[in-house]
Design a protein around this nucleic acid. Sequence first.
DNA 1: TTTGGTGCTTAGAGTTACTCTCAAGTTTGA
DNA 2: TCAAACTTGAGAGTAACTCTAAGCACCAAA
Lengths: 137, 137
Amino acid sequence: MYTIKEVAEKMDVSEHTLRFWAKSGFFPFVKRDQNNIRQFSEDDLAWVKIVKCLRSVGTENKAIKRYIDLCIIGDSTIPERYGIIQATKLKAEEQMKELQKQLDLLDYKEKFYQNLIKNNLKDSWNPMNNIQLEKAL
Amino acid sequence: MYTIKEVAEKMDVSEHTLRFWAKSGFFPFVKRDQNNIRQFSEDDLAWVKIVKCLRSVGTENKAIKRYIDLCIIGDSTIPERYGIIQATKLKAEEQMKELQKQLDLLDYKEKFYQNLIKNNLKDSWNPMNNIQLEKAL
DNA sequence: TTTGGTGCTTAGAGTTACTCTCAAGTTTGA
DNA sequence: TCAAACTTGAGAGTAACTCTAAGCACCAAA
């Protein structure tokens, strides 16, 4: 059993966010002790994990709540949940491609500046000159 | 020369966002025609591209403005700009790893549901049963 | 026994980066 | 000439946190 603080550290999510998510109904099975303190089980950590996963690929909280609710309803919702996971995976793969593109651009920029520094900033008297160079790619 | 609508389509950024970015000072060289309509040049598109890149890896707008301002100042700021690009690239690489982790989890989940569907939902009488399975990974 | 640390709640303010609506002005095709 | 299609800036609205604060409970050390 873990306190909210321990979960925050373990899962790298802030306590504030965990409480916010809890209030949003993302952790329907977290128990409380006699002092009303949340006691996260290993099972609950798995819920945190999937919520974190869905959030990190841009799933809206409303849609996450929908997925959680489907899980609670039970096996009749398995096809819909499968669809959600498939769509989310596709979205994540798109993001992967997009991120790779941006990494390529950053890599180009990095080399561009390296070259500028290596050649000791000749032709550097005019700000616009630099901006012209900036436009590259 | 492109209107804001054309830029929006070409660069896949909404007109609203482009105006918001313009107001934030991200496109300091966009000219206007006699009716005050923005006229984006090819150079301006390059600025849109780098702004989009920085945003997509989570750079805050304040930091983007700083980078733009450094570009305008000129060559004396090249070392700082180089540092920013390097740091941004590192951050993007981290995000790549993180996204891959989440993709792995989604892939596991997908196979998990496929298996559930293939085996025709036996043992499915109890909602909790399903939740137990959900916790996997 | 008091003090410090941790945790709970509710409520509400603040933040970031959009996102959308709207009124007003301009241009253009039927 | 007039309606459709664009553009503009101002400003309201939204999502998802993020933080503060008040007020209370519990426990362990000094």
